[in-house]
Design a protein around this nucleic acid. Sequence first.
DNA 1: CGCTATTGTTTTGTCAATCAAACATAATTT
DNA 2: AAATTATGTTTGATTGACAAAACAATAGCG
Lengths: 239, 239
Amino acid sequence: MEDYLEAIYHLEREHRVARVKDIAGRLKLHKSTVSSALKNLAERRLINYTPYGLITLTPEGTRQAKEVVRRHETLRDFFVKVLNIDSQTAEEAACLMEHAIPGIIVDRLIQFGEFLEICPRSGKAWLEDFQHFCQNAAQTRRCEACLSQCLENFEEKQHHRQPQTLLLQDLQPGQKGIVLSVDTATSPGQRVKELGIRPGVVAQVEGLGPYGDPVEVKVKGYHYSLRREEAAAVTVELP
Amino acid sequence: MEDYLEAIYHLEREHRVARVKDIAGRLKLHKSTVSSALKNLAERRLINYTPYGLITLTPEGTRQAKEVVRRHETLRDFFVKVLNIDSQTAEEAACLMEHAIPGIIVDRLIQFGEFLEICPRSGKAWLEDFQHFCQNAAQTRRCEACLSQCLENFEEKQHHRQPQTLLLQDLQPGQKGIVLSVDTATSPGQRVKELGIRPGVVAQVEGLGPYGDPVEVKVKGYHYSLRREEAAAVTVELP
DNA sequence: CGCTATTGTTTTGTCAATCAAACATAATTT
DNA sequence: AAATTATGTTTGATTGACAAAACAATAGCG
């Protein structure tokens, strides 16, 4: 059933509404199969559905679909970015595994990815070395040399260091920041904190509306749409 | 079906033979369900089975069961050792996910674990910092300090360095080594190389028979039982 | 040796997911 | 507006996993 929710979720994004034919096409199922599954989902109050009518997710259905999407994206990103799997394979594997992975492991996987990026000993260079190790394990004794390299870079960075802090609203799409503080004195700040945007987490701006409102943010695998004043309550540091 | 193969495999180890009742107990299924599944597996030549008779895996069944076990163990170990998930949860999650994970991702996950151990920038210390990061993301800006620490340790190690090379047969149970070379001039060495024991891979000795023969080795998630002379053909370096 | 308890099998029935074909409705074209 | 095409639903059949109950075989005990 999760597959159906996910398909409907994506179709709702792409077109305004999901249609039986498209769901069937996406899941490679017969339309009659989809039709009866929809009745099932409607009974469970996960979709709004009347025969021949429009198909949309209910709030609860949307919530569940988003959870599935989060599991899916987390697995896929881990496979692609960390394990260096080609995106086709990663996508397929994520599809299969997304239904079985427990929430706590998804959380931990996300934290792992963040730590990997943040810690000066790992990061991009380390992942590239892993990639090299995968291709040619035998001669990856050069690791020592690369520690020195890593140190040099680090010391230089340390030297010229002027930690760049700014507000979440000022990040460009694609940029990431580590949350330093959230101004909980204001009510937008309160809401933001309740979403899980707290000191230490990594927030990535995915998109900006016209005049910078709303701010599309990804935090802990969840996609949020923040008001500009909410994004203004968050101070971040560039990694 | 993979669940059945796995259960039979483990029961064959524990007792000499698998019984319907035990399989049912392990998988929490009704004995009638198991009985019909066994017929199915027998048709596919994965188990040796006659009504009321002994249940054992065929060579092909054993092969498939070992693949499942490898996927299972790889996932579980990654969850426990890298993501720091408690073993109960890790075990359950591995059970659910083992049927969906593609072989290439298992391979990569194993390589990832090995690289994590081998690379002087990561290893145990790095994982401990990740653990700390999980518990208290907010104050893990201490990462910089810890790079210096890491460097000190490394330089000291570098200084007193006398890479310890020895033969695989001389490792103690539990010890790991990075394969430096395999003597393919001899026929035991040939066989060992065909198993995938090649320069660069990590080999862990899991157990030793009386007088050091056979040598139980784990390589790339596979468990092998090597003759002493086979283990003697492999030169390893302690990590 | 024969009785009884344990274990394994067969039969029967349920449930859920699926497809194919027949049928119904909506959308589009003429 | 009617005809045609596209889309969606219903019905019926199939399959596979499962359980309950009835039945069959084996093993252990007196």
